[in-house]
Design a protein around this nucleic acid. Structure first.
Lengths: 242, 242
DNA sequence: CAATTTTCTGACCGTTTGGTCAAGTTCTCC
DNA sequence: GGAGAACTTGACCAAACGGTCAGAAAATTG
């Protein structure tokens, strides 16, 4: 897949893939601003003028790089889907169920911590019926879940973990981890803190990991506590899969 | 708390609590339609004309009963919060942790099944920073979680369940159960079904219950499998509480 | 250093949308 | 049954918003 976000999900060539020098930088700048605004107010609530202001550019400049509001929104989504898949792919052919699931949950929690706006845009899109990424969900995501589920089912068959439907396990893990981004406002309110900082996320991560592992019948101390380094945005650690 | 939804969260008297005969019925009719439309497109995306159409009323009629779009939105939210709290209150002073948590999860899953639009409006509001119900989250909800958490902490202290932070357990349960309403589109796509029916919800409920109970160190067969009767909307089973 | 392409931007426009209004119609209650 | 309140609605705004355009500035190129 070409890295240029403006190519969205291909479809039409959309302004030919000219690799203008300035273009790439400005598009990224606009996409960042757009992600923030879309996350805060949703697609309909976001105003092009606000995005322009957030990107510190005059409004017509946005339309120079992105045909329309919807095109910009789709570009933002395309950007996010890449990230989402990359993080999800971490659950590789790890030999040990506990380690694999632990890594996966931790990766998801890092995602919620470092890309909360991306998570919120994604959540918003799905809540409203996924009008733009329905195809992605039914194709790529479904296929990915089926691949990963096969591995987990194997572990279940080998009595290496409690019997469960892997697909619902995925739903549960996605929900539990993404809630720390999407519902951060609620969590902050209940915890009585102004914002979820490193401490809160560390605590939350441990709780979720324990809950998931125990829930899967996988006790024992979690192995590697990888330092919570910020994953590089443009070159995510795309592990194998299959 | 007065049942009239239009009283919202009080604040201003808002059109005096006149109990017009027709008023009550029409307001309910409008609120139902508004909930559906707000759930599908969010606050900003919803158009008064669409709500009017959904309610089968001319647009000015909406403004006769609700001052403004925002007032209508708040009324819808107030409606939802009542429901939300009621369902949450089910986790009473149940003697048995497994039974209590099991009941709670099942109640939440019923909520997702029967009031998906309510759940989506709520989710939307929170994702966008809870501009209207921030106070509710910091007051009522926080207090409720603290009360319930005390009970769970007691169980933990008595070694009746695995050690964990009850607040994060709540976040996890909310996330896992609400995802079947808010993210139904995604789940349907991954499962490859056109809609989540009774079968899917039954299966999902069992998976989530097992995951939670096992995750809390509470194994053993789930006790009562209460028939999944639709809870009455206006008179929810308000149990006592702490 | 032209010539030409790419990038930038102030001013402008057509539509959409929340909200209003005044003139009805129906209900309520004595 | 009639006076007054409650309710209904077609016609109408003003503001907001996505999008356009023509011309100016930079970049790029030969």
């Amino acid at each position: 897949m070409p890295a240029t976000a403006s190519s969205a999900r291909s479809e039409r060539p959309e302004a030919a893939p000219k690799k203008g020098g300035i273009r790439r930088a400005k598009e990224a700048q606009i996409l960042r601003a757009a992600e923030r605004v879309f996350a805060r107010t949703g697609f309909a609530g976001a105003r092009m003028a606000d995005i322009a202001a957030a990107a510190r550019l005059p409004k017509p400049n946005l339309h120079y790089y992105f045909r329309s509001k919807r095109a910009l929104y789709r570009a933002v989504l395309a950007n996010i889907l890449e990230l989402w898949l990359a993080e999800t792919d971490i659950i590789a052919a790890d030999a040990d169920p506990a380690a694999a699931l632990g890594h996966y949950v931790r990766a998801k929690m890092r995602f919620s911590r470092f890309y909360p706006d991306a998570s919120r845009v994604f959540a918003n899109e799905i809540i409203h019926g996924a009008p733009e990424i329905g195809g992605f969900l039914r194709q790529e995501l479904k296929a990915l879940v089926e691949r990963k589920s096969a591995a987990i089912s194997a572990w279940v068959a080998e009595r290496r973990m409690a019997p469960l439907d892997p697909r619902h396990l995925f739903f549960a893990i996605w929900a539990m981890t993404q809630t720390y981004a999407d519902f951060a406002t609620q969590i902050e309110a209940v915890l009585g803190v102004p914002a979820l900082g490193e401490d809160e996320f560390a605590a939350a991560t441990e709780e979720v990991v324990r809950l998931v592992l125990r829930g899967c019948g996988l006790d024992g101390a979690p192995k590697s506590r990888v330092s919570a380094a910020r994953p590089s945005r443009r070159r995510p650690p795309v592990g194998s899969s299959g």
